[in-house]
Design a binder for these strands. Structure first.
Lengths: 345, 345
DNA sequence: CAGGTTTTTGCATACGTATGCAATGGAGGA
DNA sequence: TCCTCCATTGCATACGTATGCAAAAACCTG
């Protein structure tokens, strides 16, 4: 038995028209919001459509309207809960506006430009680049083709590209000020991906903040935004630099850092070592970590992204925009706090 | 300034043909693998395509070939790392086969059938339902339309539907046997979503396993597969039932359970309470939890899913298949172990 | 070199919908 | 009653590609 799989030819608007005793155009108009159709005809067409199981073919519609109502989203690292939640929020928000997400997962190791080559063939209405590894060359190319692009959580020097980011540099600065005023003398830094703008900005802010507090540039090790990478970086830093605090470029790495420090090396957090993360994503709140972290407000960032996309799709000639969504240092228990209230920087 | 956004009309195969001094069909053939084109013409066309920036229109192609090379994936709860990783693996695997994922996120609370109504309009080549909340009615409907469907991590009574699951019932049984032989006398259960097949099978196996070990049906509370739900369930169970072990229907909830037991109620894990999860997903390995868990091997499950999809797309008349991917109880430190080796059940 | 075979190419058409335009019909006003 | 106006409907065409078919070209074979 084949389970009842039928080879049913798809039902087209013409089939419905024939059954309703009218023309294909009329059927089209019934399914086009705002078109002029008499109540009588509408009823007949709907009835015929229902009984035949008609579903408008979005592909054919896209061909003629030149709008697919599809937004391409390029992502990497869904193992990082921040990105997983971003994707979920983006999808929910876009679906509410009648758009669907065509997902592209980028292997951060492999070059992803050929991947986008595929994307563009689908006539997507817009593109969201949320993968730190993607070259901005292809973003420019999309724009040149008239397809709106928003870089999510990824700044760029290119003035022709729109982006939405958290306040990375300020975050790094505030973490530095917080650690310094907490009496830490040898803070270290675990970097994310070396090429990424988020890492660059967070590190720059951190180093500047330390300098403003009279502290030297921190020892650093790269964790590549991965759990294993951060674990290795923590081991190396603790072996070689004897830091009294570690700022990790995201929460995912901060968790690995805490695990290694606490369970491999027997350190007490924050007694022997303070740890600070970045993102303030779900697990930061879990009591085992109770992670002090600079927040990236996911909701507002997604809202800003979708808002820009909708505006750009409405009018592609709108000027580029670069949105920075502010965050704040969320104080929890993974880092020693200053005795007095934190002075305003 | 508008950032250089041009209103470039899209380049079509006809444009390329004109420039290469040939016909549109020839251009089409150059971009169709396996078609017959002379090296000379191919070179001329490629050159013209390159200089014009031509990209074949996948939408138009789909219209005529009736294949979109798009697979719809319905998901809910990307906050659960298991599903986030599944999505990443599915996407990587399908991209390698030349397919893209059109993502549908289902709000487990809202009815999702109207959502799928939208999906079907995109002429997707196949559908993966990985959301526990989706009705199987629409799955049947997809099948009736000739679109292959695979239910992921979701069993169904309907013999007309294919599915890939972990070994839920056996997992529940093994957890029960393990806890019983570890000397636990009052194991409890935190359920996931009441309607879901995963929860039903895991619970059934657990209850049967306990019975085989001479233990009564466990006290239970529903955690709805969410962190907060499981936290509340843990509080309720510990207040009312005084269990010496808790089996949670997935890892995500087991982590919430450990957090609440350890940090709110000051219990030692596994000294005062053993906790066992299901999935063996990333955080289970984190040392703070060191979670004993029955594994659902993500790689093999995704592999089985994609394999079935490819076969079904190749030949839609193939018989339905129901694949159970075996897992194993991964022993870690969150549950007291039996003194002697676990007897074979 | 003739005749046959295979490869390459272009023509024409189909895929399923949206939409400009003209035709139809009915309502309303004088 | 006749004319105007507007709402409704159908006709025809366009969107960009793939593909069957036949013409043309290239290649063999004896």
């Amino acid at each position: 038995m084949d389970g009842g799989m039928s080879t049913a030819r798809r039902v087209t608007a013409t089939d419905v028209a024939r059954r309703a005793g009218t023309s294909q155009s009329a059927v089209s108009r019934v399914f086009t919001p705002g078109a002029s159709v008499s109540p009588d005809l509408r009823e007949r067409v709907m009835e015929a459509a229902r009984s035949l199981g008609y579903r408008p073919n979005a592909i054919a519609r896209s061909l003629i309207t030149r709008r697919s109502r599809i937004v391409a989203v390029a992502m990497a690292d869904l193992g990082n809960p921040f990105y997983a939640l971003v994707l979920e929020a983006l999808s929910a928000r876009l679906q509410a506006e009648g758009y669907q997400i065509l997902l592209f997962t980028a292997d951060p190791a492999a070059p992803s430009d050929p991947m986008i080559e595929q994307v563009m063939r689908y006539q997507v209405d817009a593109v969201v680049l949320a993968s730190t590894g993607l070259s901005s060359a292809l973003a420019r190319e999309c724009r040149a083709l008239g397809v709106p692009v928003v870089m999510f959580n990824r700044m760029t020097d290119d003035p022709d590209l729109s982006c939405v980011t958290g306040d990375n540099e300020r975050g790094g600065r505030e973490v530095a000020a917080f650690l310094a005023s907490g009496g830490h003398r040898r803070p270290a830094f675990i970097a994310g991906l070396e090429g990424s703008s988020t890492n660059r900005d967070r590190e720059r802010g951190f180093v500047r903040g330390l300098a403003e507090a009279g502290l030297a540039a921190p020892p650093r090790a790269a964790g590549y935004y991965s759990y294993e990478g951060a674990a290795a970086a923590t081991r190396a830093l603790l072996r070689e630099a004897a830091p009294d605090a570690i700022f990790c470029a995201n929460d995912h790495m901060a968790i690995a850092c805490i695990e290694v420090a606490r369970h491999e090396l027997g350190l007490s957090i924050p007694g022997d070592l303070s740890v600070v993360g970045f993102d303030d994503v779900g697990p930061a709140r879990w009591r085992s970590y109770d992670l002090t972290s600079f927040s990236q407000p996911l909701g507002p960032m997604v809202e800003a992204t979708v808002g820009m996309l909708l505006e750009f799709m409405d009018d592609p000639s709108l000027p580029v925009r670069r949105v920075v969504v502010g965050g704040e240092l969320v104080l929890r228990g993974s880092a020693r706090r200053p005795p007095a209230p934190l002075p305003c920087p």
